[in-house]
Write a protein that binds this DNA or RNA. Sequence first.
DNA 1: CGAGTTTGACCTGCGC
DNA 2: GCGCAGGTCAAACTCG
Length: 464
Amino acid sequence: MGIGEPTLPPLEALDAENEMTEYVPSTVIISLDVLLRELKRKLLKDEASTLVLTGPRGCGKTTLAKKICQDKEVKDIFKKSIFFVRVSKRPNLSVIVRKLYQQIEHKGSQILELQEDTIALKWLQIFLKETGQHPSLLVLDDVWPGSEPILDKFDNFKTSDYKILVTSRSEFPTFGSPYYLQSINDEGTMTLSHHSRANSFESLDDEDLVRVSPATSFRAMDDDPTACFCDFSTSYLEDRISHVSEDANLMTHFHDSSASTAGDTSSSVSKDVGTKLPLGNPVKSTQTYKQQKLGLKKEVKKTNRVDDLEQNSLPSSLGGAEDKNDPEAKRWKAENVSDQTSSDYGGRIVKEPMFGMHTISAANIMDDGYSWRKYGQKEQTGYPNLRSYYRCTFQGCPMKKRVDQTSHDSKVVTTTYNGTTHDHGSSSNNMYMPVLELPFQNIEQPTTETQSPYIKGSERFPGL
DNA sequence: CGAGTTTGACCTGCGC
DNA sequence: GCGCAGGTCAAACTCG
Ligand SMILES: [Zn+2]
């Protein structure tokens, strides 16, 4: 799949000096470029997808990393999919993710508030997945000891096309190959040595000194003057981010296997009980009485995916043929279900992790690869919105979503997913994707703002 | 005929 | 306790 998918050029091409001559002529010839070239070589050629650029304060780690981002060869390979984010001493995952998204965002667009790490994690995964469909470079600048969990998240979520360059005063041996950068010397040059491999600097002679443009194009992040990112055009990313992954697991693996907060997002957790259940129990979560009943009804026809829960949770007296007019039957529905679900019958307790996205599509309801059944619709009092309720049609799947459609623009809908997991694959091969998504979280009211700056165009992408 | 949608009734939590 | 609002149910209906 892929739209204008860039492909990595042959590695040999990276050595082609004639490519380097395309730089804007400059009188600045510094041995920094030797380091740049070496680091680039390692970054682009080596199998390792992660590099840790280590050195003392002021040695130019960040400068070098930025130059990497600006390097023409690098840009040719990674196109616009180059990201730079400062992690800092006390990293906040939400802030980091927000900064990443800002780099694909139009100027002046809203700043995403991803207050919960769990939500941020989801969007980080989306970000890495979407941007990582093509060769991508991410610089994690100024990483401090103790940030290993964050590095691990990047490491876990990144695609094989991702290269991650970490700059830090410390080593992260479990994360990537360390490269040591030493202090600036009198000539304003630095030396780079790498730790674990044979040093190839010896092979570099004066001919390896390359011309670089002295012009830099970094700009400060709005909220963090110390954090910069490459000032590249964002069109590519906007295109790439514009359709959601086809990977059915996109919804499935949003949780961080090691994050303690993941358990809190389990859809099966009662707010009052607070017991953590592994995310691997999705069937129990929003299993409504209806679903249970359907489960009993349909399992003879469909693949028997319904597990013991269905039978075990239904009182044998009902025998799967409960009297729907019996108030007691309904009461049982509510009570029984409320013990283990996030959504009491008719109630509005929503304990599911929820995350929403603005989408724009030619059809009101986007096909996200799953099959949904509408089970309700409400007009929103006080809002011109029409809200529709859907649940995944896959037997026992706990996922639900609600779709708020603004009356003034039927093409802009807010989809809020309720639940964390589809514990099954995508059901659709002919998948149409939302043109664009904008993450936000815990939507309690319909989001009434007009199109996000993220949203562009209304074309849809056929499944490729 | 099965799958999905529509739609009014219903349930529940919450605020007053 | 009452009413409102969010969410769900389920019979009737539509569609392929
Ligand atoms: Zn599902």
